[in-house]
Nucleic acid binder design. Structure first.
Lengths: 204, 204
DNA sequence: GTGTGCATGTAAGGAGTTACATGATTGC
DNA sequence: GCAATCATGTAACTCCTTACATGCACAC
């Protein structure tokens, strides 16, 4: 695991609203959600709200994150010296604008190059049902297969029609990976859809 | 969500080691892990240890469950009248043997036919990295893609070589769905492997 | 006799969720 | 004027994991 605090120069100030003692940054444990936030700031999302909004349209599907996670994590990353925070109010409405520090950029780059992965987690109640579906009548088995196929088709369609277009807008600007991920997701679910359709046919 | 306690007949005893007052079974909330355990008992796993061992070889990949979850959940299911528990020691070593009650069988069947799914959850640090990989040099992007492809290939291979054979043994005995799931998993990961290989080639 | 597997549980803690609480701005 | 959106945070709770604790049986 990359320990970002190692890269923080000693006497570095952490920004206009930083902690009282800016000379030492505590070592905080960085989890994937931390890098998700760092990455979103790197892509241009400035406020906690904007980070969550961006995540909802993209990373939500392979790394879910709730709004209640975002604000404490932003504070942690700031206290670790990886983010710089500035007051950026809109009229009387407060707003904080975050940017990557050099240390933050370095921590993000280290993580991106790192080969260590948390174990992939996949939880799907439909697949769990299908595993035990021998206890069902054939007609109910077919109905289950059909519902799963329809769900896979819906995910593929939504990804193609709603997620991909915004990712392709980014792609025009030179940021290609979001669109790559959207295509991977759409294609994989389309494959599962066909697979389940074939299984359904074979069962009949 | 199916509420199993509705199907429990009033004055039904819950087994030899049941609670002091067997006339009323408290309504417990059933989650997918509950049905996983019910399903494993239905497939013939009798002890908590055996349930966990069976899950490790099959359902682990789409519904992870730790041993520490199993024992409290077994107690809950028994107190709800869905499982019957009997002492079944091996020498001086204690062992509990669980079996589905009629209510348990009914609850399982209701869930299998139910269309309500908890939202699918997927968390993969590799995909998250790839999403932000525009910040990497092309050589590092290719390395990331290669690692992801190798992981997908490894999952497909292990599923085909280690999971499928035991599922196919069950299939011979008439329980076909575990093998179906193993094939879905192996084929999907093989598809992702090919997809990533193509992406890698296009990037070069 | 010793290591591996079978077997049952508890305790503490971490990660993440929903619900709560508040309020300004912008567009209709 | 009103609804939707932008914006920041906290509190309580749930789920699940790791680590701990214990001990017999069986094969080598």
């Amino acid at each position: 695991m990359s320990d970002a605090s190692e890269q923080i120069p000693g006497g570095r100030a952490t920004g206009s609203t930083g902690p009282v003692s800016p000379t030492r940054c505590p070592a905080v444990k960085l989890r994937p959600a931390s890098y998700l936030i760092l990455g979103m700031v790197g892509l241009g999302a400035r406020s906690g709200y904007a980070i969550k909004a961006a995540a909802d349209q993209s990373t939500q599907f392979f790394w879910p994150m709730s709004l209640a996670q975002v604000y404490p994590e932003l504070a942690r990353l700031q206290s670790a010296g990886l983010l710089r925070r500035e007051e950026d109010p809109r009229g009387a409405r407060e707003r904080h604008s975050y940017a990557l520090t050099d240390a933050g950029e370095q921590a993000l780059a280290d993580w991106l190059r790192s080969a260590q992965n948390e174990p992939t987690q996949f939880r799907d109640e439909g697949v769990l049902r299908l595993f035990f579906a021998d206890a069902l009548q054939p007609a109910d088995q077919i109905a289950l297969l059909r519902r799963m196929r329809e769900r896979a088709a819906a995910v593929a369609a939504i990804t193609r029609e709603e997620i991909l277009p915004s990712a392709e807008a980014l792609e025009q600007a030179g940021t290609r990976c979001p669109a790559l991920i959207a295509r991977l997701r759409a294609d994989t679910h389309a494959y599962v859809e066909r697979w389940l359709a074939r299984a359904e046919t074979e069962l009949r």
